[in-house]
């Protein structure tokens, strides 16, 4: 894990609590695919997949604001999975949390090492 300023740590804890309402999270049932090393933090590919999820949230613990994206799957979703590209300010943990249709939660965490930060700071 990466050392973070207290404010950044609090911001991601708040974001997780807002999504899960403080519920316990399983460590399996969700897959987060991101590069171990991203040369350019401006465009980091990320893929999340959680069969049976109603929604998935992606958070970046070391960005100025932790929110990255939320996916809400409808009845015609072919899989509870999606890919996108995100910005990372520096080396940090990326967190994905799925809210399952039965109301339980699952999380996956991965550290991404960033060579050039992507938030213009």
């Amino acid at each position: 894990a990466t050392a973070l300023p207290m404010s950044a740590r609090a911001a991601i804890e708040d974001a997780i609590a807002a999504f899960t309402d403080g519920a316990e999270m399983a460590e399996s049932g969700i897959t987060l695919t991101a590069p171990e090393i991203a040369e350019n933090g401006n465009t980091v590919p990320i893929e999340v997949s959680a069969p049976g999820a109603a929604s998935i949230i992606i958070l970046a613990a070391g960005n100025p604001t932790p929110g990255v994206a939320t996916f809400n799957f409808g009845p015609l979703a072919g899989a509870q999975a999606a890919s996108t590209r995100m910005r990372l300010a520096g080396t940090q943990d990326v967190v994905a949390i799925a809210k399952m249709e039965d109301g339980s939660y699952a999380q996956a965490r991965q550290e991404v090492k960033v060579t050039i930060g992507g938030c213009g700071g």
Binding site: T65, A79, T84
Partner: peptide, 27 residues
């Protein structure tokens, strides 16, 4: 949406890259 029924919705935050790319699956 497909024929008026939801496939998926995405909320994007400022951490999404320039020229947002989204890949997903539909039935």
């Amino acid at each position: 949406e497909f024929n008026g029924e939801s496939v998926m919705e995405m909320i994007l935050e400022p951490a999404i890259s320039t020229n947002p790319f989204i890949e997903f699956q539909a039935i």
